Simulated scan of single mutants.
Amino acid sequence: MTAASYPIFDADRHFYEPPEAFLRHLPKKFKSQFQYVEVNGRTKLAVGGVLTDYIPNPTFEVVAAPGSHEAWYRADNPEGLTLREMAGKPVPSQAAFHNGAAHLAVMESQGVHGGLIIPTLASVIEARLHNQPEAIAALFHALNCWFEEEVGFAYENRLFPVPMINLADVDTAVAELEYLLSAGARVVGIRPAPVPGIYGTRSMGFKEFDPFWARINESKIFVAMHVSDSGYDQIARWWTAGARNSDEFRPFEKEPFGELLDWMGRPIADSLSAVICHGVFDRFPNVRIASLENGSAWLEPLLKRMENIYHKMPKSFTRNPVETFREHIYISPFYEDPVEKLGELIGFDRILFGSDWPHPEGMATPMDFFKDISNVNEANTQRIMSTNLQDLLTGVR
């Protein structure tokens, strides 16, 4: 483990939420929308009355070991193992996966001082209840109340859970934001995807959402857009849904065509483009957004498209959208991404270290990230590993 003379801040850590995280505070009228059910002796999750395998083991009694998929994502698989084979034997759940004090103890052993705590199971909700915004809001509020009770939103000023907000009804979203601000939240999470509504989906950058962005702007907390089920798997279904030999979905299995489709980069690239093109940062200059666990391979072509479109339609922007991006957007790259290139594109003061611990695709040893940025100079390394997230958490621009 690499020692550092400054505190390490990790922008992408996770809890595996237990059932009570959603059920303890969920009003009775919504309990049928989020159920743990037994199917052939296994507990599955039914959302909106439909079974989902998006999270194959929603109780998280056993999980893939932290970092067990790392070699896969580094493209280091000479034996040609499947992702499931590479994961190996599941490990029992640990207190650190859902308890603040236990998680902090693990962070101490890892050499990490502080970090964001992002829910895992919450990612299934919005895509499966897109036409039931009241139920989404109730589930997110229940989860946020559980976080406040179990951890708080600034536990020992070192653990910072990311509460979730759905924007479908802006008044409800603002009310949730007010509750979270009063509870001490330093960050809120929204899904990188179009916002559902009774007339169809729409951009979170449209002016109808200005009351939400105005309160973010005033409070100077930041918004996290973490990778989620953004509904983009419909692109794969467009190509494969009619196949007569289509295989049944199996979690943690991959196939080449699906991997080639940009299911991860497109949602975040599209979402950030919507926020910029629809003028959020022009109207609310204090808003800052952190892209978490979306990688950065999508960034260079996106910035090139922005530059090109700006010169085609300069009067459609108040300034070059690339400059807007560089001022307001922070990115946590994957460990396999070229961080030096990312620094050239947006500046090292906009890069965040994120380990994704304890997820299997993350890092078993977070401080190993120092090896991945060994070519970055000391000042910029400190920005990535410490200063940038601290500034976001304290409202420094």
Results as ranks from 00 to 15, higher is better:
residue 235 I to A: 11
residue 180 L to F: 06
residue 266 R to Y: 10
residue 180 L to I: 08
residue 244 R to Q: 02
residue 187 V to G: 02
residue 205 G to P: 12
residue 205 G to T: 13
residue 209 F to G: 00
residue 277 C to H: 14
residue 218 E to Y: 12
residue 293 E to L: 03
residue 186 R to T: 00
residue 246 S to I: 06
residue 245 N to T: 12
residue 221 I to M: 10
residue 278 H to C: 09
residue 219 S to I: 10
residue 290 A to V: 03
residue 287 V to Q: 06
residue 241 A to K: 09
residue 176 E to T: 12
residue 297 A to C: 04
residue 170 V to Q: 00
residue 195 V to F: 01
residue 224 A to E: 06
residue 237 R to F: 00
residue 221 I to C: 01
residue 267 P to E: 03
residue 248 E to A: 11
residue 284 F to Q: 04
residue 216 I to D: 05
residue 186 R to N: 05
residue 272 L to R: 09
residue 183 A to R: 15
residue 284 F to I: 07
residue 279 G to W: 08
residue 281 F to K: 10
residue 283 R to N: 12
residue 280 V to S: 11
residue 176 E to P: 13
residue 288 R to H: 10
residue 168 A to C: 02
residue 210 D to K: 06
residue 251 P to S: 15
residue 198 I to D: 02
residue 178 E to K: 14
residue 281 F to Q: 07
residue 261 L to N: 06
residue 288 R to Q: 14
residue 211 P to I: 11
residue 289 I to S: 11
residue 200 G to T: 06
residue 271 S to W: 03
residue 175 A to K: 14
residue 256 P to L: 07
residue 169 D to F: 00
residue 185 A to K: 09
residue 259 E to P: 04
residue 180 L to N: 06
residue 207 K to P: 15
residue 278 H to Q: 11
residue 248 E to V: 10
residue 175 A to V: 12
residue 174 V to N: 02
residue 251 P to Y: 14
residue 190 I to Y: 00
residue 299 L to E: 04
residue 190 I to W: 02
residue 245 N to W: 05
residue 206 F to Q: 08
residue 230 S to M: 03
residue 224 A to C: 07
residue 209 F to W: 03
residue 256 P to E: 08
residue 291 S to H: 08
residue 198 I to V: 06
residue 240 T to E: 15
residue 251 P to H: 15
residue 285 P to N: 04
residue 242 G to M: 07
residue 285 P to G: 00
residue 171 D to P: 02
residue 245 N to K: 10
residue 288 R to I: 01
residue 270 D to H: 08
residue 258 G to K: 06
residue 266 R to C: 09
residue 261 L to E: 02
residue 261 L to M: 15
residue 202 R to Y: 00
